[in-house]
């Protein structure tokens, strides 16, 4: 339908597309992503408005799984492009030499921190994905819990057994939380904070969005998750309040990169070019408050407005380089929540 309308506009394109239909139809891109499932169709459709000749095959999973898959396939990559994966994951892949550096068209218009520091960059950012606390107001009231305003508030014993957060070992959001706390509070105080928080944790989840979805359903009162998820649930009518803690919030970027060894380099570059266009940025803005071209950003419904100023100065390189150490430490401290709570 859509294609039909377009061709109607200019006879020239009709002829051109008819002539080249066989050549174009052949380009299939396998794109790995951690973008929320409900947005995938939209992303592909918008891209196809400009590039009907490239067909996107999505491989969607949570950040941890997509990262694991990509690493597992290191010797034998299946993906052409990664569109919408945490920058920390992409840094890891960069260090493994799995990414094809490429300087997309229009790179200058992108905010500095939204691209890899190397030239040409190995990845370019799309939007920022920020930590937040989802509080179920009905449950909070029922249990007499005050709405927390800071991370430190969550260590108050009043919240005991009312908090869920993602396990950093399996969730990108979980790692984002932990690495940002270590940056906000410093290494020692950061772990001390988590010790306190651990006492109040009801359970750790495998996925980053689950704590907020559980808070939305009242399965827990408070879910440490990310703002985007909270806003989505709130839009669906969940009794949620999204809290941006006063100490500042960790964040990560969703970013785009080309996988080294792709057979469809040209199409991959086309997709990466498109991923930083104004149109793409406006599309990201429909769900995310902070985007690569922040100048274009408009406020997002249900999203707290103070996000950009709350974002900490996240050191992605540090986080990526210390990932293994942090996760091991975390696992040794908290992952044996298997023991009965005393």
């Amino acid at each position: 339908m859509m294609k039909f309308k377009k061709t109607k506009k200019t006879i020239g394109t009709l002829v051109a597309s008819l002539l080249s239909i066989t050549a174009f139809a052949a380009t299939e891109l396998t794109v790995y992503t951690a973008v929320e499932a409900e947005d995938l169709k939209k992303y592909a459709a918008r891209f196809n408005e400009d590039h009907p000749d490239i067909n996107i095959n999505w491989v969607r999973d949570s950040t941890g799984i997509v990262t694991a898959k990509l690493l597992a396939e290191k010797e034998n990559p299946k993906a052409d492009v990664i569109w919408g994966l945490a920058a920390t994951s992409l840094l890891l892949m960069k260090s493994e030499g799995m990414l094809e550096a490429y300087s997309p068209k229009g790179l200058d218009g992108l905010d500095d921190k939204f691209s890899d520091k190397s030239t040409p960059p190995s990845w370019v950012g799309m939007d920022a994905w920020v930590a937040a606390i989802c509080v179920n107001t009905i449950e909070a009231e029922k249990h007499g819990l005050p709405i927390p305003s800071s991370w430190q508030d969550l260590t108050d014993s009043v919240y005991q057994n009312h908090v869920a957060m993602p396990n950093p070992n399996s969730s990108g959001t979980g790692f984002l939380d932990v690495s940002s706390w270590l940056q906000i509070f410093g290494e020692d105080d950061g772990w001390a904070f988590m010790d306190g928080l651990h006492k109040n944790i009801h359970h750790y989840t495998h996925s980053g969005s689950k704590p907020c979805k559980q808070a939305a359903r009242g399965e827990v009162a408070i879910g440490v998750s990310f703002a985007f998820r909270g806003a989505k649930s709130k839009a669906k009518g969940a009794p949620l309040e999204i809290v941006i803690p006063s100490e500042g919030i960790g964040w990560d970027m969703e970013a785009t990169a080309i996988v080294k060894g792709t057979n469809n380099l040209e199409a991959a570059q086309t997709l990466v070019d498109w991923s930083i266009t104004d149109k793409a940025n406006q599309m990201y803005n429909e769900g995310y408050a902070v985007i690569g071209k922040q100048a274009l950003a408009k406020p997002v419904e249900h999203f707290p407005t103070n996000i950009p100023e709350s974002m900490i100065d996240n050191d992605f390189e540090w986080a990526a380089n210390n990932r293994k150490r942090i996760l091991t430490e975390w696992q040794n401290r908290y992952d044996s929540k298997s023991e009965p709570k005393s």
Binding site: G64, I65, T67, A68, L71, A72, N167, N169, S170, S171, I201, H202, H203, Y204, H206, L327, D335, S336, K337, S338
Partner: peptide
């Protein structure tokens, strides 16, 4: 255990976590 295990780790979920979470094959 994956669905209802909460923080109660068992061998089967550990394999999943090691591979999927930590990419530690």
């Amino acid at each position: 255990p994956k669905v209802i295990g909460g923080g109660y780790n068992v061998l089967a979920t550990d394999i999943y976590k090691q591979v999927v979470g930590q990419q530690n094959f």
